[in-house]
Simulated scan of single mutants.
Amino acid sequence: MTRSNPAIEQRWDVFHRVVNMPSPELRDWLLSTPDGAAAYAPEPDIDIHELGGRVLRILEKRRVDLTDDDVATMELVTELVVGRLMNAPPEEAVNEPWRDTLLTLGHDPLRPDSPRGEEAATLLREMTTT
């Protein structure tokens, strides 16, 4: 990736606001998650645990080291996380499948910086404006 690509920089920034777990915390979560984590997938054809591993690898990279696959992963993860945040269940704190999916993607919805509704939708729009 080039260093001065504004679209990539925008995606990087939005991705890092959506993924609010540091890499050590995500790594610990992924290691403690049972193989059945794919059952939580928002899309039946997505291996959510494998996607979480890709998120972890991106978190350990510098922006200038991103590949096209990394950028596609950042876009997919942002869309999945924002979609789930915009459609949070009424009792989200106790909805384990919903929260577990988000945790596997690197987002802890119980943190104060976790957006909801229109605030979450704004992140997705920010990513696609450049």
Rank of each mutant, 00 (worst) to 15 (best):
I8T: 14
H49I: 13
L56I: 05
A88C: 00
P112N: 06
P24M: 07
V14Y: 12
E50H: 09
T101H: 12
E43H: 08
M86G: 05
A72N: 11
L103W: 12
A39I: 03
D35Y: 13
V19S: 08
P6E: 09
D13N: 11
K61T: 09
T122S: 09
L102A: 04
G52I: 08
T78Q: 03
R11Q: 14
R111V: 02
M86K: 07
V14I: 15
T2M: 06
P97F: 04
M86Q: 14
D35H: 13
T101S: 15
L102P: 04
E43L: 12
D35R: 14
D108T: 04
N95M: 02
P44C: 06
P109S: 10
T122D: 12
G36H: 04
M21Q: 15
A121M: 01
L66V: 09
L66G: 07
V81E: 01
L85K: 04
N20F: 13
E75R: 15
L26H: 03
P42R: 09
D113V: 05
V55D: 05
T67W: 07
T2E: 11
G52Q: 06
D70Q: 06
W29D: 00
L51Y: 05
R17I: 08
L56D: 07
E96D: 12
P42A: 09
D45P: 01
S4A: 08
M74V: 06
M86E: 15
P109E: 05
E119W: 01
Y40W: 15
L110R: 08
L80Y: 07
V71I: 15
G36A: 12
T104D: 07
G117P: 07
G83I: 02
V14Q: 07
A38N: 15
L123F: 13
E91P: 00
D13W: 02
D65R: 13
T130W: 05
